[in-house]
Simulated assay, not measured.
Amino acid sequence: MHNSKIPVITPRNAKIEASAGAPFEAIRVARDVLLTSRTCGLATLDPASGYPYNTATNIAVEPDGTPFFFAARLALHARNIEADPRISLVLAPFNKGDALTLPRLTLVGRAELMSDAETPLAKARYIARYPKAKLYLGLPDTQLYRMRIDGVQINGGPARNASNITADDLRTDLTGAESLIAAVDDEIVRINAVKGEASRLAVMAGKKPGAWKVTSIDPDGINLASSQDLARLWFAERVTDLNQLTKALTQSAK
């Protein structure tokens, strides 16, 4: 068991002058990276050698901001997690230019196997982001793991570092939004049935128009996906029910 008094990401001994860094909205950037990254690096620990073992995988996110991922039971990283649940994820806009000039998010924590009761809904959320996942999520050795985050590091690009944000900063507060969560699946179907509506929302989120689909909605915003990209549209104000959501979408249309 980790000693909670010791940070899971050990700070550097070197003194870094905060004034030398460029200002940026660390929490918003970190949440943007978490919610719009398609691929992540997953590091586990080899149970025999103790060396880190890294692989690439898709990343999905639960409504409260908890990341989760697929692993076949026979995969090496699944075996490693069974022996030691400590993992690290790195998320970034891979294949979009010079990686060192773009935001990268490092998460450290523990993998937790989702229960049989949780798996069907998690699979549906995963497939909404990655439609081709139907090919492998139906395999008999499919497993889904969520990550319980213990440490966060966001690098927003040159001279933009922040290690003082926490797992709570990445979470989406669902308190009081029960009616929204209950109605959101039907609302997603409705929005996606309106020709061009999802594309309009994606453009508002800074993306090019195209064949976009809304994949999830939470009190803070809307997540969208195309065959090649993900987008996040943040609400101007927190939304907790369907009436507020309708108002937010109406205002965005203006």
Rank of each mutant, 00 (worst) to 15 (best):
D186S: 15
E187G: 03
Y136V: 08
D64M: 10
K207A: 14
T55G: 02
Q153A: 10
F68T: 03
D150Q: 07
N164W: 08
G109M: 08
N161A: 14
P67N: 02
S179E: 13
R86H: 08
I16M: 10
K96L: 07
F69N: 11
M1D: 15
N80T: 09
Q153I: 09
I165F: 05
R125M: 14
D241S: 07
D220S: 13
A177N: 12
A26G: 01
S19V: 00
L249A: 04
L174T: 12
E118C: 04
L35G: 01
L230P: 09
Q153R: 14
T215I: 15
L74S: 09
K247L: 15
L174P: 15
T215C: 11
V29S: 07
I59N: 12
L137T: 04
I165W: 03
C40P: 02
S227I: 06
I181D: 07
T166I: 12
T119F: 00
P158Y: 14
A99D: 14
Y130K: 02
D169K: 13
D185R: 13
P158G: 10
V33N: 05
L233V: 10
S163H: 05
I191Q: 06
R79D: 09
S88D: 03
D141R: 04
D32H: 14
E197N: 04
A236T: 13
T246R: 14
H2N: 14
L121E: 10
P120C: 02
Y53D: 01
R31H: 08
K207V: 00
P11S: 11
V203L: 01
T142H: 06
S216K: 04
F69A: 12
S19N: 00
I188S: 06
A122C: 03
K207S: 13
V108K: 01
Y126D: 04
P52T: 00
A124H: 12
G157S: 07
T55E: 01
A72G: 15
T250P: 00
R160P: 01
I154W: 09
T215V: 15
L107A: 02
R86G: 02
K132T: 11
L74T: 07
A159R: 14
D98A: 07
F94G: 04
I149R: 04
P103F: 01
I59G: 12
S4T: 12
K213P: 00
V29Y: 00
P140A: 02
D218N: 14
S37N: 07
P11A: 09
I188T: 04
S49H: 01
M1R: 12
W212P: 04
T240I: 14
L233H: 15
E178F: 10
K123Y: 00
M147W: 08
D150Y: 03
I27L: 14
L224C: 12
Y136M: 09
I222A: 02
T175V: 14
L224F: 06
L230C: 07
K132S: 13
G206P: 02
I27C: 13
V214M: 05
T166N: 10
L45T: 15
